Deep mutational scan, measured.
Amino acid sequence: MSGNGNAAATAEENSPKMRVIRVGTRKSQLARIQTDSVVATLKASYPGLQFEIIAMSTTGDKILDTALSKIGEKSLFTKELEHALEKNEVDLVVHSLKDLPTVLPPGFTIGAICKRENPHDAVVFHPKFVGKTLETLPEKSVVGTSSLRRAAQLQRKFPHLEFRSIRGNLNTRLRKLDEQQEFSAIILATAGLQRMGWHNRVGQILHPEECMYAVGQGALGVEVRAKDQDILDLVGVLHDPETLLRCIAERAFLRHLEGGCSVPVAVHTAMKDGQLYLTGGVWSLDGSDSIQETMQATIHVPAQHEDGPEDDPQLVGITARNIPRGPQLAAQNLGISLANLLLSKGAKNILDVARQLNDAH
Rank of each mutant, 00 (worst) to 15 (best):
V316T: 03
L234H: 08
I166A: 09
H120R: 13
I231R: 04
I291P: 09
P127C: 03
L81D: 03
E242C: 03
K227Y: 15
E82V: 06
G346Y: 00
V93F: 07
E52R: 12
V143A: 13
A44T: 12
K140F: 10
E80K: 09
G60Q: 07
P106M: 06
K62Q: 15
E258C: 15
R325Q: 14
V224W: 03
S344M: 06
G335E: 03
S284E: 00
G144M: 12
R225F: 05
G203V: 14
G131Y: 11
R173C: 00
P327T: 03
A297K: 01
A40G: 12
Q314C: 13
I291V: 07
E209F: 15
D311N: 12
V103C: 15
L220D: 03
E209C: 13
Y46P: 00
L161M: 12
L193F: 06
V202W: 05
A320Q: 03
D61R: 00
E52H: 04
A151H: 12
L76Y: 07
D312V: 06
T294R: 10
L42S: 01
L276Y: 13
P127R: 13
G259A: 11
D65I: 08
G259E: 11
K132C: 11
A44M: 04
T294D: 00
N322C: 15
I205C: 13
T319C: 12
E52V: 12
V93W: 02
A297N: 00
F129A: 07
H120S: 12
L278F: 09
A122P: 03
P309R: 11
A191D: 02
K348C: 01
W283P: 08
L174M: 14
L343N: 15
H95M: 05
Q180D: 08
A189Q: 03
H207K: 13
E139A: 13
L234A: 14
C114K: 08
Y46S: 09
A152M: 10
C114I: 13
L81Y: 03
E210A: 07
R246G: 10
T298N: 07
K348S: 13
F108W: 14
K345L: 10
T279W: 05
A189I: 01
G168K: 02
K115P: 13
G236Y: 00
N322W: 14
I71Y: 11
A252E: 08
L64R: 09
I186P: 02
H239F: 01
V237W: 02
I336G: 03
L338G: 02
D307W: 15
A226D: 11
Q153R: 03
G203W: 14
A214F: 06
I231C: 03
K43E: 09
F253Q: 00
S290N: 07
I53R: 08
W283T: 05
A112M: 02
A303V: 06
T243A: 04
V93E: 00
A55K: 07
I318T: 07
T269E: 01
R201F: 05
R116K: 03
I71Q: 15
T172E: 03
W283S: 13
G274V: 12
A67L: 09
V202R: 09
H300A: 02
L97I: 08
E117D: 12
T133Q: 06
I248W: 05
G308P: 06
R251F: 03
I54H: 05
L351Y: 12
S147D: 06
L81S: 03
R251Q: 00
S184G: 09
R246H: 05
L245Q: 09
S165L: 04
L85P: 01
E162K: 14
L357I: 12
V237S: 11
I291L: 11
K70M: 13
F77G: 02
Q314Y: 02
P138D: 10
A226G: 12
A331T: 09
E162S: 06
Q153V: 06
T269G: 02
T136K: 13
G216E: 00
S147E: 04
V39L: 09
I54K: 11
E139R: 08
F163L: 14
P208R: 13
Q153K: 04
G274T: 00
T41V: 05
R201P: 04
R246W: 06
P159I: 08
K74N: 13
Q204K: 06
A339C: 02
L188G: 09
S146I: 06
R156C: 09
M212Y: 02
Q50R: 11
T136Y: 11
L134A: 08
D178W: 06
S69V: 10
V124Y: 00
V267W: 02
Q204E: 05
C261I: 01
V282A: 10
V143Y: 06
E306S: 11
R251K: 12
E73A: 09
M212T: 11
P105D: 06
L244T: 14
P101I: 11
D230S: 14
C211Y: 10
Q292V: 07
Q50V: 02
I186G: 06
M56Y: 02
R321S: 11
F125K: 02
E73T: 14
E80W: 07
I248V: 08
F129R: 06
R201K: 09
I323K: 03
V265A: 12
L278W: 04
D286I: 15
A347W: 00
A320P: 02
L154W: 07
L161H: 11
K87Y: 15
A189G: 09
I350N: 05
V235F: 01
I113Y: 02
V353P: 07
I186E: 15
N322H: 09
E52G: 12
T58P: 02
L177A: 05
Q180T: 10
